[in-house]
Amino acid sequence: MSVDADQDDRDLEAELASPAAGQFGVPVDAVCVGCGRTRVKRASLEEMDQHPQANPTALEATDCTSFKHVCYGCQTATWWNPVAVLTGLLESDRDRGE
């Protein structure tokens, strides 16, 4: 799924703005393999085993591999499985010039 689906009552923009999401990369909704927590994270195309020149808006979560990122619930760096490429947040980043 590459759309920004209604994620219960989560504020995806606030999650993306949090330092816990990371500073650079494509915004994805991902699940921590340690605790099962779902959060917005940023990952580079290379971290998700994609060509560095790939169009992030054309990616599907199923095309992306797991990536390592900090989980504040587990309090460690762990693997995250992408479940959605958040194209709406990606477009918002571009509109703000990030």
Rank of each mutant, 00 (worst) to 15 (best):
M1A: 10
S2K: 12
S2G: 15
V3I: 10
V3D: 09
D4V: 04
D4S: 13
D4Y: 01
A5M: 11
A5D: 14
Q7S: 07
Q7Y: 14
Q7V: 07
D8W: 13
R10H: 15
E13R: 15
E13F: 13
A14V: 07
A14Y: 10
A14S: 06
E15R: 04
A17F: 02
A17P: 10
P19R: 03
A20Y: 01
A21L: 09
Q23T: 12
F24E: 05
G25I: 07
G25S: 12
P27T: 03
P27M: 01
D29F: 06
D29C: 11
C32D: 14
C32F: 06
V33G: 03
V33K: 08
G34W: 02
G34F: 01
R37T: 03
T38F: 02
R39H: 03
R39E: 00
V40H: 01
K41I: 01
R42N: 05
R42Q: 11
S44F: 00
E47I: 09
E47L: 08
M48C: 03
M48T: 03
M48Y: 06
M48W: 01
M48H: 03
Q50E: 07
Q50S: 02
P52L: 06
Q53D: 12
Q53L: 14
Q53A: 09
A54R: 03
N55K: 12
N55L: 11
P56S: 07
A58P: 09
L59T: 03
E60R: 13
E60N: 11
E60A: 13
A61D: 11
A61V: 04
T62N: 11
T62L: 10
D63I: 02
C64F: 02
C64N: 03
S66D: 11
S66E: 13
S66T: 10
K68I: 05
K68M: 05
H69Y: 07
C71S: 12
C71G: 02
Y72Q: 02
Y72T: 00
C74R: 01
Q75G: 14
T76L: 01
A77R: 03
A77S: 01
W79Q: 07
W79V: 01
W80M: 03
N81R: 08
P82M: 11
P82D: 11
V83L: 13
V83S: 15
V83N: 13
V85D: 03
L86F: 12
T87G: 10
G88C: 07
L90I: 04
L90N: 04
S92W: 14
D93F: 10
D95H: 12
R96V: 10
G97K: 04
